[in-house]
Design a protein around this nucleic acid. Structure first.
Length: 744
DNA sequence: GTAGGGTTAG
């Protein structure tokens, strides 16, 4: 990919003027006209219109051709509160001999514009023009633009110019912008080295370095710098304390956060709304709604940040009533506030509530949805499996003309994958030009959950050809792919290469994946050995994987061990009880089964009820076991009867595993097996989904063996494609077979 | 004649 700054430069300026001689003296900068009434008037302008009038007058009397006077006009048009960069650039292009001041004004204005590339282009043009050398007033803005563009190589080249430029290299403004540039490009080492090499540092140097560390995720280094400031007697200011608060928030260290708050008050640090907001945010991130509330109530001035942060605080604590009330009370609800609520719902596993708020936003048009809104809404669709709404959002995005960034691409790939349309996910993946590690990881995960293990692995290799470094999550996803497709050798090999090839130390989740891979393949001994020798403490995911493998291979003894260890870590894990009781049931140990059930009842542990949902014409229908609440319940049960007859006709007898599923699904009567939530959803799907369309069903738990067998038969008998997403993966039923090849 | 560091939602 071409880096932005290698773009073709615009045609040379001053085509209508004779080329200046670079060796000649720079333009005349006499301030002869600085007290001219027209020049004095420039500062009093309040609008572009007024400025244009002055511009006209200047042209009329020839003042425009005085470089100093023209530069004043440039400054006003580029940097005043009513500035128009387009106009400023037009004026600039008319000046026969722009001076350094004019160049700097435009470079500065572009550096903080949405198009910082223009700043870099102006800079390059200035150098090519050959009459002006960049000054200490030029570099800070070109570094700023380079940081925004993440134009590392260009910025490093600038650094070289600064060093050669001798005097500018000692300017603290230039140096601080260099620290900022390196930190923004993710080169904290270079930033720090440069910081250390500086002969004179001011408080901004320290602040820039601390913020660089905080934003780069090196919170401890940031706090060490703060300590060092104290040792070196540099007095921290409000910006320092804001950075330190932010570090505490990231660390989720409430105690230290409170100390920082007290430090600010004790040391008379200048109060500011921004600082208050930063402390508020710190308390929210540390999970103390009480501290946040206390500060919020005390704050004299509040802005939209304060309100939104407080809203997030309540929402993260699960107090959605209070969060909603903040949204209703705040003086102006911008999109960020809506996003905060939608995102909180979505992240707390309440996708329906998230989408309800999204709908409300659409309906009342109180704020324009932005990329974040859409990412959250798409994630909610993914959780629900609501593909119609997901597709609608995709179309809506195109209509709004929203370009896909990596966040959106990831959300779309995730949504389509989780809603069963992995082909569409692949199409989006192929259509985008910029793919970060999250985009690649989402696609690997998508293929994994659809049991397309080989493709997932080849994509994983391809991402490395594209020079995108896999992260810890990518590795989890690819190991997961191996597990879902039974790729034991591949899984083992990838796991063993993690440290050397990818520089990632396996965490609990990676170990859990490998245990799962080995366990499913029946390599229980190797799995057990792996657990015994793993350098990290095996967590519940690891024991859960082992327990699942024991269920698959009927290893009672090991199952008991795994279950005990799992319950030590998570005493309320009803899944563990259910799995163990299933294993007992499978071996006919009914006494143990009833003992376990009794124990669960005594502990007040209730199994999460099985629930299946199906989206028909953009409406999500939910079914619980034996559900009769659906408006079309009668029709559904009639269809179930028909299904039973046709199944019998093809010689289907529900196998013995039904008994253990009796335990898994609910306290049920004899017919319960036939009334599993997924069967109800399938019956409803057969009635309501057009024959040409696949039936999409989402189940919150793992699909039961009998339902899996029935789904296979139904796909054949009714010649329908059925897509079933369970807690772990997708099952594509077609022509009597399942994509999981009965390996799940 | 010009300047730097910043708070919410993914």
């Amino acid at each position: 990919m071409a880096t932005p700054y290698t773009q073709v430069l615009p045609p040379p300026r001053h085509q209508h003027f004779p080329k200046r001689n670079p060796t000649s003296k720079t333009v005349n900068n006499d301030r002869y006209f600085q007290n001219h009434p027209l020049i004095l008037l420039i500062e009093k302008c309040h609008s572009i219109k007024q400025l244009k009038q002055i511009h006209a007058q200047m042209l009329r009397i020839g003042l425009f051709f005085d470089p100093f006077s023209a530069s004043k006009l440039i400054e006003a048009s580029a940097l005043s509160h009513f500035s128009s960069l387009n106009y400023a650039h037009q004026v600039f292009d008319q000046i026969p001999q722009p001076n350094l001041f004019s160049w700097n004004a435009l470079i500065r204005a572009y550096s903080s514009s949405p198009d910082p590339m223009q700043s870099i282009l102006m800079f390059v043009n200035m150098i090519c023009d050959g009459c002006e050398f960049p000054s200490k007033f030029t570099y800070p803005f070109v570094f700023k633009a380079s940081a925004k563009m993440k134009a590392f190589r260009f910025g490093r080249g600038l650094h070289g110019m600064v060093v050669k430029g001798k005097r500018v290299g000692f300017d603290v403004f230039v140096c601080n912008s260099l620290i900022h540039f390196y930190a923004d490009c993710g080169c904290l080492d270079s930033a720090y080295l440069f910081f250390e090499s500086m002969q004179t540092r001011d408080v901004v140097s320290w602040n820039t370095m601390i913020l660089g560390f905080v934003e780069g995720g090196c919170v401890d280094e940031a706090l060490k710098m703060f300590d060092r400031m104290g040792e070196e007697n540099v007095r921290p200011n409000d910006v320092t304390m804001m950075a330190v608060s932010s570090a505490c928030g990231k660390k989720m260290d409430l105690e230290f956060g409170r100390w920082v708050h007290a430090f600010i008050e004790r040391n008379g640090i200048k109060e500011s709304l921004i600082l208050d907001n930063a402390i508020l945010d710190m308390y929210v991130k540390c999970g103390s709604t009480e501290d946040a509330e206390r500060l919020f109530d005390k704050m004299g001035e509040k802005d939209v940040f304060s309100w939104t942060t407080m809203l997030v605080g309540y929402a993260r604590a699960g107090n959605f009533v209070a969060a909603r009330s903040v949204l209703n009370t705040m003086p102006s609800q911008d999109i960020a506030a809506w996003n905060a609520l939608i995102s909180a719902y979505e992240q707390s596993g309440k996708p329906k509530e998230a989408l309800a708020v999204f709908n409300e936003l659409q309906l009342h048009k109180k704020a324009e949805p932005d990329e974040v809104t859409l990412v959250c809404a798409l994630s909610a669709c993914a959780q629900l499996g609501a593909i119609d709404l997901g597709r609608w959002i995709h179309v809506y995005m195109k209509k709004l003309g929203i370009k896909l960034n990596c966040h959106l691409t990831t959300a779309l790939i995730d949504m389509y994958s989780k809603c069963g349309d992995v082909e569409k996910a692949l199409a989006i993946f192929d259509s985008v030009y910029i793919r970060d590690v999250f985009v690649w990881s989402a696609m690997v995960a998508g293929l994994a959950m659809h049991g397309r293990g080989e493709e997932a692995i080849s994509l994983f290799l391809k991402m490395q050809e594209h020079k995108v470094k896999p992260n810890s999550v990518t590795l989890i996803n690819v190991l997961c792919a191996c597990s879902h497709s039974g790729l034991v050798e591949e899984g083992r090999a990838i796991f063993n290469q993690m440290v050397n090839a990818y520089g990632i130390i396996p965490g609990v989740k990676h170990y859990a994946c490998l245990v799962d891979i080995l366990g499913r393949a029946g390599e229980l001994e190797e799995a057990e050995e792996l657990i015994n020798n793993m350098p990290v403490t095996p967590g519940s995911t690891v024991w859960g994987a082992l327990l699942g493998a024991c269920r698959l291979h009927g290893n009672l003894e090991l199952a008991e061990q795994a279950c005990n260890r799992l319950l030590e870590l998570e005493p309320e894990n009803h899944g563990a009880y259910v799995t163990l009781s299933n294993i007992y049931a499978k071996s006919g140990k009914w006494d143990e089964v009833s003992m376990l059930r009794k124990h669960m009842r005594e502990c007040g542990l209730k199994k999460e009820p099985g629930c299946s949902s199906i989206e028909v014409n953009s409406v999500v229908h939910e079914f619980l076991v034996g559900d009769t609440t659906h408006p079309q319940s009668q029709k559904i049960y009639a269809k179930l009867d028909e299904i039973a007859t046709r199944l019998k006709h093809v010689g289907y007898v529900s196998n013995k595993s039904q008994i253990l599923q009796l335990v898994e699904e609910e306290d049920m009567q004899e017919q319960a097996l036939n009334l599993h939530s997924e069967k109800l959803a399938m019956a409803f799907g057969l009635i309501s989904v057009a024959p040409s369309q696949p039936i999409h069903i989402i189940k919150n738990l793992r699909v039961c063996g009998d339902c899996h067998a029935v789904a296979k038969l139904l796909s054949k008998i009714y010649d329908r494609e059925i897509l079933l997403r369970d807690r772990y993966r997708f099952h594509h039923f077609k022509e009597g077979n399942c994509s999981c090849k009965d390996y799940w």
